[in-house]
Amino acid sequence: MQVHRVFFNPPALPHDEVAETLERALGDCSYEGEAASALVGSALNDDDYEFVEHWCLQVGTRAVSGSPLLGLAGLCLGHTARRFGHLSAEAVALVHALAARAEADPADVDGRALDGLDDVKDYLHLR
Rank of each mutant, 00 (worst) to 15 (best):
L77N: 03
D46V: 07
A63G: 07
A93N: 09
P10N: 03
G78F: 02
D16V: 08
A12H: 03
A99D: 08
A113E: 00
T80I: 04
G111N: 13
F84N: 06
T80K: 07
D110W: 12
D118L: 13
D110G: 04
T61P: 06
L26A: 13
N45R: 14
L26G: 10
R62S: 14
T61G: 07
L126T: 00
E90T: 14
V52G: 00
S67R: 07
H96C: 12
N9Y: 08
E32H: 10
S65A: 08
L75S: 04
P106E: 05
A91R: 09
R101Q: 15
V3K: 05
E17Q: 12
A36Y: 02
L114P: 00
P10T: 01
L22M: 06
G71D: 11
A97M: 01
L117E: 11
L124W: 11
A104V: 06
L22P: 11
M1D: 11
C29F: 07
L26E: 12
G111F: 02
A102G: 10
A113R: 04
L87Q: 01
L114Y: 00
E20N: 04
C56M: 08
D16I: 09
S37D: 11
A97W: 00
L22H: 03
V6S: 02
D28E: 14
V52E: 01
H54R: 15
E103V: 12
V92M: 08
Q58I: 11
R83W: 01
A99C: 07
F7L: 15
V120S: 05
L98W: 01
S65C: 02
G85T: 10
P10Q: 02
D118N: 07
F8T: 08
G27A: 15
A43L: 04
G71H: 08
L124K: 07
N45Q: 14
A43N: 02
P10R: 00
P14G: 11
L13H: 06
Q58D: 01
H54Q: 14
V95C: 13
A12P: 00
L117V: 08
H125R: 15
A19K: 10
V6Q: 06
D48S: 06
G71L: 08
R5N: 02
A113P: 00
Y31I: 00
N45W: 02
N9S: 10
D108E: 12
G41I: 03
V109P: 03
Y123N: 06
A36W: 00
V40P: 03
G116T: 01
A25Q: 09
A12S: 02
R112Q: 14
R82A: 13
F51W: 11
L22F: 05
G85L: 12
F51N: 05
T21Q: 01
F84D: 01
L70E: 07
L75P: 01
Q58Y: 04
E23I: 11
R127L: 10
A81G: 07
S67H: 10
F7G: 12
L26Q: 05
L26K: 07
